[in-house]
Amino acid sequence: MQIGIIGAGGMAAYHAKGFTLAGAEVVGIADPNKPRSEAFAATHAIPATYRTLKEMKTQHPNLDAVSIVTPNKFHASLTIEALQMGLHVYCEKPPARNASEMQAMYDESKRAGKLLMFGFNNRMRPESRAIATYIEQGEVGRINSAQATWIRRAGIPGFGGWFTDKELAGGGPVIDLLHMIDLALYFMGYPEPNCVLASTFHDFMGNASFKGPWGIADGTGKMDVETACHAMVTFKSGQCLTIRNSWAEMNEREVVSTTFQGTKAGGKVERLFGIDGVDETSVDSAVLYTEEYGRQVNRTIITEKDETMGRIANAMNFVKCLMEGEKPANTPEEALILMRITDAIYKSSETGTCVML
């Protein structure tokens, strides 16, 4: 299986490693920034660099698939272009900037009959997989409610770069940190949303005290996205989900968690980042809250630590779906529901009303 990578961004390294570990051959990297693509190719033993997807496909007529690691604005157009070339696509999160773009990607994947997957890596974290097993085996029962949280006290990813430009990114932490929303929906069975009520805030944008630690370069672009969001989603099934995402908000340390309450048990998957955001100082946990023999019990689930937060495992799953018939870890149908919810969050915040879906 031959795969090409489009975009030499930070997540591309996880794609390259995951694809290779799963038995695929990464034949090229395409990025209009030639020095960046050449440096990436040299680091990851990739034999060729290109400026465009078209150039890569021309040189590799037997190319099977591509992964997309670009600013969000280009996810839809590149995905559709690749699908029309007959390629399978693995696209970084978020799937797109909005539901309209995601719908077009979904429609094209169905027309082409090709696999379309996304970088929802938190589903593949060891602790998430452990909790999912208990849910699948019926030990949790129906999940009535859940809370999705990714909060940062000081974590704006650059000032004026593409992350803070709505045209390029589609939004701020609602879009950037949607992993826990996806994980909560995944645990709940991805129910059909009914109503969304949300507020977004723009405090601290441009304040250097609230900049993130990841070394993402500042730019000369806009800073017109939100820095925090609080939302409530109800579903046609009667379930509900509360959401809190922030890049800059007065709270404790950076916390990443999905908590849920079921009819038989509750649970939580959580990552507590180190004080400076460095993964090796973080703590991952998975726990079930249940009742046994008339007593309230917390079951701590011991799992191996994964500093990649499931990124390599998710990329491996993409390859194994195509080479070994493994079940996809996520689907375009789910991605479309997720983007409909994010659209509704922004609309509700703008209108001050509950948005019906």
Score class of each variant (00 low, 15 high):
residue 302 I to L: 02
residue 220 T to E: 14
residue 344 A to S: 06
residue 357 L to R: 11
residue 213 P to K: 14
residue 256 V to F: 10
residue 15 H to Y: 15
residue 174 V to W: 04
residue 123 R to S: 03
residue 265 A to R: 02
residue 284 D to Y: 01
residue 30 A to R: 12
residue 66 V to M: 09
residue 182 D to S: 08
residue 223 M to H: 01
residue 119 G to H: 05
residue 354 C to N: 14
residue 13 A to Q: 13
residue 294 G to R: 07
residue 175 I to R: 05
residue 134 Y to P: 00
residue 164 T to C: 00
residue 72 N to I: 14
residue 187 F to G: 05
residue 216 I to L: 04
residue 317 N to Y: 10
residue 309 M to P: 00
residue 275 I to E: 09
residue 293 Y to C: 06
residue 221 G to S: 02
residue 91 C to F: 07
residue 346 Y to W: 10
residue 77 S to I: 12
residue 25 E to F: 02
residue 139 E to Q: 12
residue 250 M to G: 07
residue 17 K to A: 03
residue 172 G to K: 01
residue 146 A to N: 05
residue 247 W to R: 08
residue 288 L to W: 05
residue 281 T to M: 04
residue 109 S to I: 11
residue 81 E to A: 13
residue 236 K to S: 08
residue 267 G to M: 08
residue 326 E to M: 06
residue 229 C to E: 15
residue 292 E to G: 08
residue 305 K to Y: 03
residue 223 M to G: 01
residue 251 N to D: 10
residue 335 A to I: 12
residue 54 K to Q: 11
residue 144 N to L: 14
residue 134 Y to N: 00
residue 154 A to R: 13
residue 39 A to L: 13
residue 329 A to H: 12
residue 81 E to F: 09
residue 119 G to R: 02
residue 305 K to L: 00
residue 223 M to F: 01
residue 227 T to V: 13
residue 68 I to V: 14
residue 86 G to I: 01
residue 297 V to M: 10
residue 327 K to N: 10
residue 324 E to S: 10
residue 7 G to L: 14
residue 235 F to K: 03
residue 132 A to W: 00
residue 176 D to S: 14
residue 330 N to C: 15
residue 355 V to R: 03
residue 125 R to A: 09
residue 283 V to Y: 03
residue 45 A to C: 12
residue 95 P to G: 11
residue 154 A to D: 09
